[in-house]
Design a protein around this nucleic acid. Structure first.
Lengths: 194, 194, 194, 194
DNA sequence: AATGAATGAGGGTTCATTCAT
DNA sequence: TATGAATGAACCCTCATTCAT
């Protein structure tokens, strides 16, 4: 039982990864069950053994991607860093996601056009969870005198919004490397909160 | 002749507005010709009297919305203001769009997944036209010593990106009025370029 | 009254000619009322002032084209020629139609896929009228000892069939001129009846 | 594997046959996917499991029908017959197709108004393949002194054209049996080439 | 006599979903 | 577990036809 359960979960993971990949190439509606299955050398009918329907599959994609990102942020909190250093790291991390794993973070924009009501609530909660990490650092920075900002939530919105926009225009073959981008954004966005 | 031409254009406008509305509720692919027509108490077949196909209609939506925004920006350039003042106004304007005319500006995201090659080029050009206004102000501000930024383009990306994100979370019934939001964003974003 | 009647008929003629032209470029189903009207700088709505519906218009095309061809054949009967000479002329004439006015004769193939029952009967009668001219010449030729054929109807079928096929393959830029084609077909087809 | 492949091919065959039938009743454009499917108690959506689109289905109809006919002609070449005898057999065969399998041969008319460029080329090639068999016999007959014709290609056109026309008028309940028809046409058409 | 505008039926196509095997 | 096959709803689009003006 345990073994078969493991196998099941592993297969689910594979499917989710495939779905994430296709979604980011073709967008939400452009991703077909057929293509998601084909990526794994399966047929689309099989997907329904693992997921109730397409929305369910896409929902679990969202959970996985954002959950992973949240975990990474948590790690920075363990480290002994100033809030500015933490925020810089978080910014760099987010940007890396936005570019290298654009495939995944892509999903997080405009969920209300994709998901039905039942799914929307947990999705928004997960989002907030992610945002909360930023809030925490900013808040702490204010308390400890590193930042001067009066509206920490607004600042967080500006940070995340500006970074989410990156995937709209960034091309890997452009004139800026990811590292440069991370540095510039960190510098400029730190000016917002300082 | 003139009269009928006027009428035609007016009807086209109505359809475009209806399309914009539906698109913003359901997204590009989610917006059906049927629904766009129903909004105006027409049948979908009739739309094809005015527009070649769905893509054409959506394209003209894009042109209208962005064109209008560009015109408004131009006005600020006529006025005798410092670059900072101009930029503040442009920020306030953009934010107002993002909130009050959310229905329209919403469209501007991810054109490459929606439009075919033929339409993509003019769309991107229009986008750049809009962005160019921001670039100009920022650039001038740098030249005239108001701003200190080293990467004006990056700064513009941060500005627009953060503002475009507003519509993802802003609710009219929230605890901030538009005016407050405009003020806060202007302050914080000015810190980026200064 | 008379004058307006004349005008009406003239306009009808124009429409029929336009229809014939479009039909032969695009085929029966490919010809749209819109295009037929556009050719005359009219709008499709206007066509319905002159013709009950599309089928009616197309029917009258058929009548006109075939009626004209029949008249031309009649002329040969007035002339003082041997039956062989007459038949040669008729063959040449048919071939000319098939090529130069391919636009028109085209219509005559496969009427049963195009016309509803009501129209089918008169259409077939007109066809038979045309064929009867050939029958007459062949029959006379047999009676007067010029031809030896035992099955005049079969021969006529072979003649017309082979000539109708020409439009399937003949290209004006090919290696045979119309005159050469007429001569060869006349020679070879005469061998059938002789 | 082999089995399911067989089944697939068999189903494809069934669909093709259904399509051929409908096409011959209603013509190319008149034949709808819906009707083709209904004939087999399927829904039109299912057809797309087997064929890419309507054009693809119709193309494969053409390939099947003509391919089969070509094979039959090849057989006559194996036999030890004079060219005249061969040609007679080929004529009889073609006529039989034209009548008994009218449903299928009917398709071969006017491909250029139906098929897009991609399909047109192979279609015309297949046609030429069929015609080439006739050319070969006629040519050989000329070389071996059986036939006297100067323009073998023209003769072939006359032969095929006249026979293709048969389906326009032949009715099974008419006064001629197929065998009579075959005999008469063979006699008369042989006069053309001799 | 003509037109602009609208309609509505119908066609091709896509695709999530189902289900027997 | 997985699949092949089928379904059916939904979509875009075309076009003959209608009708008030």
């Amino acid at each position: 039982m345990k073994l078969s359960e493991k196998k099941l979960q592993k297969k689910k993971q594979e499917i989710i990864l495939s779905a994430v990949k296709i979604v980011n190439q073709k967008g939400y509606q452009g991703a077909t069950m057929e293509e998601i299955a084909a990526e794994l050398l399966m047929t689309k009918g099989s997907l329904y053994y693992y997921f109730k329907n397409k929305e369910d599959l896409l929902f679990q994609c969202h959970e996985m991607v954002l959950g992973q990102a949240i975990n990474e942020l948590q790690d920075y909190f363990q480290e002994d860093l100033s809030n500015e250093q933490k925020l810089r790291k978080m910014i760099a991390n987010h940007i890396r996601y936005m570019i290298e794993e654009k495939e995944t973070f892509n999903m997080i924009i405009k969920p209300d056009q994709t998901f039905s009501k039942d799914y929307l609530h947990p999705i928004l909660r997960k989002r907030n969870e992610y945002a909360a990490s930023f809030d925490e650092v900013i808040q702490k920075g204010v308390e400890e005198g590193e930042f001067t900002i009066k509206e920490p939530k607004m600042a967080r919105m500006i940070l995340l919004g500006s970074m989410n926009w990156i995937q709209q225009w960034y091309r890997l073959d452009g004139d800026k490397s990811i590292e440069e981008l991370q540095a510039i954004y960190a510098d400029y966005l730190l000016k917002v909160v300082k």
